[in-house]
């Protein structure tokens, strides 16, 4: 008799693996923020499209922003997009590894620079769009 092949047991790995542990759930939420990112970009595209349709069409569109459903969608999108921003800036220092001599620049400091940049960009965008 030749060498007998060892029989191994292959455990199933369910497609619901991401529900099993909190870090995996948070990962999946992070990945799904992209849906809201794209959704809002499509909204922006519709915004520009309405602009090409003249003042009346555009005016109705802007009025519709006041509707409860629009406000609710904006709030949900904001929550997910903020989650994207936070996870994005927290992970960036892992990729952007900077050294000063032998010492690695602390990840918190690198992330802090991105957060600071975010505040500056947000203020500039707000001042520009709101025309203040």
């Amino acid at each position: 008799m030749g060498k007998k092949e060892m029989s191994t047991y292959h455990r199933p790995f369910p497609n619901t693996w991401w529900l099993k542990r909190k870090p995996y759930v948070l990962f999946m939420i992070r990945e799904l923020t992209s849906v809201f990112v794209a959704g809002y970009c499509i909204f922006l595209l519709v915004f520009v499209y309405k602009l090409t349709q003249g003042a009346d069409v555009y005016g109705n569109f802007i009025d519709a922003l006041k509707s409860p459903s629009s406000v609710a969608l904006h709030f949900i999108a904001l929550a997910f997009v903020l989650y994207h921003t936070i996870t994005w800036f927290n992970l960036t220092p892992k990729i952007l590894v900077l050294y000063k001599g032998e010492e690695r620049i602390p990840q918190g400091l690198v992330a802090g620079m991105f957060y600071a940049g975010w505040v500056v960009v947000s203020v500039i965008v707000a001042l520009f769009v709101l025309g203040m």
């Binding site: 060892m6 191994t8 047991y9 292959h10 455990r11 790995f13």
Partner: peptide
């Protein structure tokens, strides 16, 4: 997880 099991807690 992720490895075939040979016996008990021993995986390949």
């Amino acid at each position: 997880t992720g490895f075939p099991v040979e016996r008990d807690l021993i995986f390949q």
